[in-house]
Design a protein around this nucleic acid. Structure first.
Length: 730
DNA sequence: GTAGGCACCCTTTTT
DNA sequence: GGGTGCCTAC
């Protein structure tokens, strides 16, 4: 046990060995957060304070859950079996599977991912004949998820206007459709299991008694419903409930846009009367200059819980800054700098290239590719979201649950079997009349569509019977063949990669069986494991996050870099409108989230941090001119080392030259290529008689063609001709 | 019923 | 600039 606690600093030690009381650990970037969390669990088990089955640990991603489990297994002599560990959604899924009857769900309910959910909503609008211009499916999806995350069923939504009333009606219809089809979306997983616990007292008591310690990672990223779910399980903070141990960093909360609620941290502290608030501020990752920059930036945010990172490792290297003429020059410069780093012995896998939005990766990739530097892009299309995988999964879902209309609609005519939009429409009409699923409606249909559709149903029936006795991997393989997917992609010119992915699906199934701890009883049940596998596929988009540590430069958005660290980090596109993003700069809340994002970005670097920006950039097919990001100005000049400023018509040969101080450089920075804005500049606030107040986000053209793009917030983003529109600076 | 052409739309992302 | 989704022509 002394081993376990060795090398912890005071605060870490304090956090790990707290008595069983509620605690909030404010863990700064690089302060050993994961270590504290896992050591706490190991310590609780090893000192005999709690049996593994009395532990519940919640993480933000599946990857984090796996990592924690791996670390725990290494720390403890015995595997922590019986402990519940996973994401909120994973844990809720587990709960609902175990108590599906009480939750009012079919045993083999399916999970809709975001894409499936959107498709289901579109289908709903179509059957109800709703104008999707007036009710854009995406907005509706957002609305429904938002209501569910607020814990609101349709009846609980306050609607004061017709538009909202109509959306509530659609929410009701959507719920009915999901219930009919036996499917559950992500938000529903949470809400349903919350209601399950809330309404079934014996069940709630059972879990409340069982879990003595609940530990939550990335607490700043939880939403309202997740917090209420925790409160329910922890017995609302009363005596005798579980001890809630929450670890988070309000300064790294970057998911407000999808419902994360930093306020949960304050609420937790208040509602649970948390006596133990421990700050982990010693940083073991970055040099002093980098930390000073991070601290300086985040200080511009109001309403923080307050924290200041420090290190005893010295100042380290200055932050290198480079301003390029164009996005192309910026990319070229970065690539040259990478080459020189690699020449000096740096490992490519330890170099990261970060950007605010995915669209920025293309230019960078282009330059890396031309230079022959291996690189890996994170994000993008995930394995289980690929078209061919979704098709295969849809067949599997139909086998597990024929009433799954989303799956039915996806593959009824794939591969093409002559079932067009018209046949499908009449089927949908009939389904509405009979109030049955598409699948169940087919026998009611007559005529030619009825015949072809009946053939499809027979195909699925055959597949179901034939696969019932098969182990999972063989089952999947059989379906791939039987459904004609293999033949289809075999015939397609570009089908090779898709075939490889289908093979990969077989591997995934085999791995899933190998890792599953399903007992023999479950295995005997036809298709039981199939449902588990499908849930796994929905919940885990697949870590195509590729092999770690390979010798390739790592490209990713700042969001996906959270939790990672690299020896050298290039932070590109530090321009107003891009970072901070133009959609965020009108609201304080939005701007502060951008600033936290910047804070996350800066603290990814261990030794060396580069920040770059470009004076002109191709965006959405047009050249835009952005000034430097305000975040760059928020870093004390003394921490920065400006590298060669761009000369007019500069070629790419600019690497490694003398540092310019930021102030002297700024004095002669105004580039001739900027359009004349008649006294206005990008980032400036303006007011317009009709649209109200806004911010200039872009400009193009010159003379009588000169126009600016202004973000008027609620009034939208407009292009205005300077010669015509009357804009007053504010 | 399907293939190709043309508007249209563009944050961030995990579950 | 590039992907998606709708519409028209076969």
């Amino acid at each position: 046990m002394s081993n376990l606690l060795a090398n912890l600093n005071n605060e870490q030690m304090q956090a790990v060995t707290l008595p069983p009381q509620h605690a909030l650990i404010l863990a700064g970037a690089g302060s050993g957060k994961t270590r504290v969390l896992t050591t706490r669990i190991a310590w609780l088990i090893q000192t005999g304070q709690v049996d593994p089955s009395g532990l519940l640990a919640v993480t933000f991603t599946n990857k984090a859950a796996k990592e924690m489990l791996a670390r725990l297994s290494a720390m403890l002599p015995v595997s922590p079996r019986g402990m519940w560990i996973g994401t909120f959604h994973g844990l809720c899924n587990r709960l609902l599977r175990a108590h599906y009857r009480d939750a009012g769900l079919p045993q083999l309910f399916q999970i809709l991912d975001s894409g499936d959910q959107l498709a289901a909503i579109k289908r709903l609008l179509k059957t109800l004949n709703i104008d999707d211009e007036k009710y854009p499916p995406r907005d509706l999806q957002h609305f429904i998820n938002g209501q569910k995350e607020a814990g609101n069923r349709p009846a609980a939504v306050e609607a004061w206007d017709d538009h909202t009333r109509q959306r509530v009606m659609l929410y009701t219809e959507y719920e009915a459709q999901c219930q009919r089809e036996g499917v559950v979306d992500f938000a529903e997983l949470l809400l349903r299991s919350y209601e399950l616990l809330e309404r079934h007292e014996p069940l709630r008591r059972h879990y409340q008694r069982r879990f003595r310690h609940i530990l939550v990672d990335e607490f700043q990223d939880t939403n309202r419903l997740q917090y209420r779910w925790l409160k329910l399980l922890a017995d609302d903070g009363r005596e005798g409930g579980a001890a809630l141990f929450c670890v988070g960093d309000d300064d790294q909360s970057i998911y407000r846009f999808r419902g994360a609620e930093v306020g949960n941290m304050r609420d937790f502290e208040r509602e649970f009367r948390v006596a133990n608030v421990i700050r982990l501020e010693q940083n073991y990752r970055s040099g002093g200059n980098i930390l000073d920059a991070a601290n300086a930036i985040i200080r511009y945010n109001a309403n923080r819980l307050g924290k200041n990172l420090w290190t005893d490792q010295g100042a380290g290297e200055p932050i290198r800054v480079f301003e390029a003429f164009s996005d192309g020059d910026e990319a070229r410069w970065i690539v040259e700098e990478i080459q020189s780093l690699v020449r000096d012995g740096a490992s490519r896998g330890e170099i990261a290239l970060l950007y605010r939005s995915n669209a920025q990766s293309r230019v960078l990739e282009h330059q890396l590719f031309s230079a022959g530097i291996p690189y890996r892009v994170y994000g993008g299309l995930r394995f289980f979201e690929r078209q061919e995988i979704k098709h295969a999964l849809a067949y599997l879902r139909l086998i597990a649950n024929p009433d799954d209309d989303t799956a039915f609609a996806r593959v009824v005519n794939f591969p093409a079997r002559g079932i067009g939009a018209r046949s499908l429409e009449s089927l949908q009409d009939a389904a509405r009349t009979f109030n049955t699923s598409l699948y169940a409606t087919v026998p009611h249909l007559s005529g030619k569509p009825g015949t072809v559709l009946a053939q499809f149903v027979r195909l699925v029936e055959t597949l179901r019977t034939e696969t019932a006795p098969l182990p999972l991997p063989e089952l999947v393989d059989h379906v791939l063949h039987g459904a004609g997917l293999r033949d289809h992609y075999l015939a397609e010119k570009e089908g090779r990669e898709r075939l490889e992915n289908l093979d990969e699906l077989l591997n995934a199934a085999a791995n899933f069986v190998a890792e599953s701890d399903a007992d023999a009883e479950t295995l005997k049940q036809p298709h039981a494991l199939l449902a588990d596998f499908l849930a796994h596929a929905s919940l885990e988009a697949g870590d195509h996050q590729a092999e770690q540590g390979a010798e390739a430069v790592q490209l990713m958005t700042v969001h996906s870099a959270k939790g990672l660290e690299f020896n050298a980090v290039f932070l590109s596109g530090l321009e107003e409108g891009l970072f901070p993003h133009e959609n965020s700069i009108l609201e304080t809340e939005g701007l502060e989230e951008e600033r936290r994002l910047m804070y996350v970005a800066v603290t990814r670097a261990r030794e060396r941090l580069y920040i770059t920006c470009a004076q002109s950039r191709m965006l959405h097919g047009q050249t835009r001119y952005h000034p430097r990001s305000r975040f760059l100005e928020e870093i004390p000049a003394g921490l920065l080392k400006w590298l060669a400023p761009p000369k007019p018509r500069a070629s790419a040969s600019t690497s490694g030259s003398a540092g310019y101080s930021s102030s002297s450089y700024r004095a002669n920075a105004a580039p001739a290529s900027r359009p004349e804005l008649g006294g206005l500049r990008i980032g400036q606030g303006v007011s317009h008689a009709r649209f109200g107040q806004g911010v200039i986000v872009a400009a193009e053209g010159s003379g009588s063609d000169a126009r600016v793009q202004v973000n008027f917030g609620p009034a939208g983003i407009k292009w205005l001709l300077l010669g015509v529109a009357k804009l007053d600076p504010i």
